Computed example of a mutant assay.
Amino acid sequence: MSFHVPTIDISPYLVPGASAATDPACAQVAAEIDRACREVGFLQVVGHGVDDRLVDGLKAALDEFFGLDLDVKKRYRRNPGDNRGYAPPKSESLSNSLGVTPANMMNDFYEAYTVGSEAGWYDGVELPESSYAGNNWPEAAPGFEPAVLDYFAAATGLSRVLLRACSEALGLPIDHFDTLVDHSIDAMKMNNYTLPEGEIELAGELMGMGAHTDFGILTVLWADQVAGLQVLGDDGTGEEAWHDVMPADGAFLINLGDAMARWTNDRWKSTLHRVNPPVVDGRIIRRRSAAFFFDGNYDAVISPLPGTVADGGTAYPPITVAENIAAKVAGLKTGLATGAKPAGADREAARFAAASA
């Protein structure tokens, strides 16, 4: 089977009250989503309803912050205890989130800024700061916060539409996941893969962002149309199995995270991917991206859905969303690939090992 990331028009699900039970167009979308999630774990969506002006605002916000001097950006460096703020180049190793120590031990080459949902955003719900930390907005980039929040809200809305479509694609009621995401841990990581000359040495083997899977339910990715993102397919071994993927005009790339793979007991794929941006004359070609992670409620229990475990088959053990995320974030921030792993992590790491053979 040749590798292909399908493009799906999800506009039928934007109609209020739309459902596969009553609308053949929705039923067709749900069938396309199921096939993409079983075969690839990645898809592109169009007809998503996100205003182009919000995307333009996001791009301007990225340029405003990442264009600051490195010393200024470091004022907003992420605190060790949360996942908010600035991460300088070579401060993370995403392969470690799988409990895998990369052979070359090279940390990922990119700078990033992460924001996320705060406890105060959800009225009437008592939530732990450990999962819903306050954001660290950069005063040195005054246009950053409002533009990012506007886009964040749109990505949240899109994710909820997609999850309802995914519910029907799995043969579940359209609202099956609603109570599992009504105070969702959402985060957005904005990445920059080009830096002024002299800030970091371009020498030896270089990896923009190491091979990894995402942690939560699904990811909505906006990215420049520049080579770099590579997705692992089933149609080869070693480097031949990695395929370049770029978003189509006006499309968002969507991929599943480990929570959804565990819920479906690997009926749907949480696919390994990495970023290897092109280098020309010793300089990385400019590439920006923003990955919105729709992760689910901190206390939602991830266990296989009905009908996903065959008689005599194996199943992932139950784990909460917060436990799953905390273990993996600790790995990528500290590099402690051999430290505590969430239940089922060995099964996830085996995918990485097989791809690296």
Rank of each mutant, 00 (worst) to 15 (best):
D281T: 05
R287S: 06
G250E: 06
T219V: 12
L253N: 07
D258P: 05
N255E: 00
L218Y: 02
V226W: 05
M260A: 05
N265H: 09
G210K: 02
A261R: 13
L229W: 11
G250C: 08
G228N: 08
L253S: 07
R283C: 04
G250N: 09
F252C: 14
D214Q: 08
T219L: 01
G208L: 00
V279D: 03
H243K: 10
V245R: 12
P277N: 02
G216D: 04
F215I: 14
V279P: 14
A241S: 12
E239Q: 13
W268H: 06
I217W: 10
V220I: 15
A251P: 08
T237N: 08
G208S: 02
W222N: 03
P277E: 05
R274D: 00
R287L: 05
G250P: 14
R283V: 10
D258R: 07
D224Y: 09
R267N: 06
I217A: 05
T271V: 09
E239D: 13
F215L: 11
T271I: 00
G210N: 03
M207D: 01
I217D: 09
M260S: 07
D281S: 07
A251Y: 03
T264L: 00
D224F: 13
I254A: 02
M260D: 08
A248R: 15
F215K: 09
G282I: 12
P247Y: 04
W222I: 02
M246Q: 11
A227L: 13
A259P: 11
L221T: 01
W268D: 03
V275Q: 03
E239S: 13
K269R: 15
A290F: 02
H273R: 05
L253Q: 07
G282E: 05
G282L: 10
N255H: 12
P277T: 01
R288L: 14
H212A: 09
L232H: 09
L218R: 01
D266A: 01
E240R: 15
R262G: 11
